[in-house]
Simulated assay, not measured.
Amino acid sequence: MIKFAFCYEHDDTLSFVKNEVQNCLRQREIEISVLCCHNACELAQRAHSGCPDILFCDLEQDDATLRSAIMNVKRANNRLICVSTAASHSAHAEDILLEPLYRMPALNRKHLWRYAALAYEKILDEPASFTYYVRPSYLRVPVHEIRYFASEGRRTHIISADCRDTFYQKLDVVEDLMRHKNCRFMRIHKSYLVNASFIAGFSRDYVLLTTGERLRISKYEYYQMLTNQLKSLKNTKLRYHPSYSEW
């Protein structure tokens, strides 16, 4: 069971954040373990008996003690994901050590639900697979089987060797998640993210997949990036190498 920690000074804020996150995940039939605290000292004490996987807190306050406590939790569980409200001042230099660190634009129901789901999906993620939610459950697909993603508004279609499915997530978010996978995925259009292993060839206007499908390249900038990225793959060690040509 995934353990969530909530660290907020005021009880009303703590209760609001905890309840909204739990409501979001219960709607997806997900039960979580919960740890609540009000300050750095309580976080350190309660995390000692079991480190959280996901921490909701307020890093907008420039609290060195809280950051130090979170860093200690991060050392004990390097998979820790932090979710905080967006800082009104410049990001703290040490925040890079807390990555992945998500910053919510505001502390409201809409953003809490969005970032609770995002953090949960991130903690489930593995380098060799992609996890997404289609009611009533999370699904996992090996990344080397995914041919491409295609977006349509807030919906993203995943096309793999065995299925075509649709889930709610922006393609920009999917692209960020795929950067940490064992396969290389390339953006060729605002609506297409393609697995390089399935690219058989490309021109200025289209990418040809090994399946025979043709996907449009929307901008010259995408064509340039595709050309450079495919050439760079010759010098990388991937399990699945693309076999492509330019025509």
Rank of each mutant, 00 (worst) to 15 (best):
I2A: 03
E9W: 00
L14Q: 09
K18A: 06
N19S: 15
Q22H: 02
Q22V: 07
Q22P: 06
C24S: 15
I30W: 04
I30R: 04
E31W: 03
I32D: 05
L35V: 14
L35M: 13
C36I: 02
C36E: 07
E42Q: 15
R46C: 02
R46N: 10
P52N: 01
D53G: 13
C57S: 12
D58V: 07
L59A: 14
D62T: 06
S68K: 06
S68D: 10
A69D: 03
A76H: 07
A76V: 07
R79I: 08
S84A: 11
H89L: 02
A93Y: 09
I96N: 06
A116W: 00
A119R: 03
A119E: 04
A119M: 02
D125M: 15
P127N: 04
A128R: 10
V134H: 07
L139R: 15
V141I: 14
H144G: 11
H144Q: 14
R147S: 10
A150E: 15
S151K: 03
R155E: 04
H157V: 05
H157K: 12
C163R: 12
C163T: 11
Q169R: 06
K170E: 09
D172Y: 09
V173Q: 04
V174D: 02
L177H: 03
M178T: 03
K181E: 12
K181H: 05
R184Y: 00
I188A: 07
K190E: 06
S191F: 01
Y192I: 01
Y192Q: 08
L193E: 03
N195C: 11
A200S: 14
R204E: 02
L209V: 00
T210R: 08
I217Y: 05
S218Q: 06
E221P: 05
M225E: 08
T227I: 02
N228Y: 01
Q229T: 02
K234T: 03
N235Q: 09
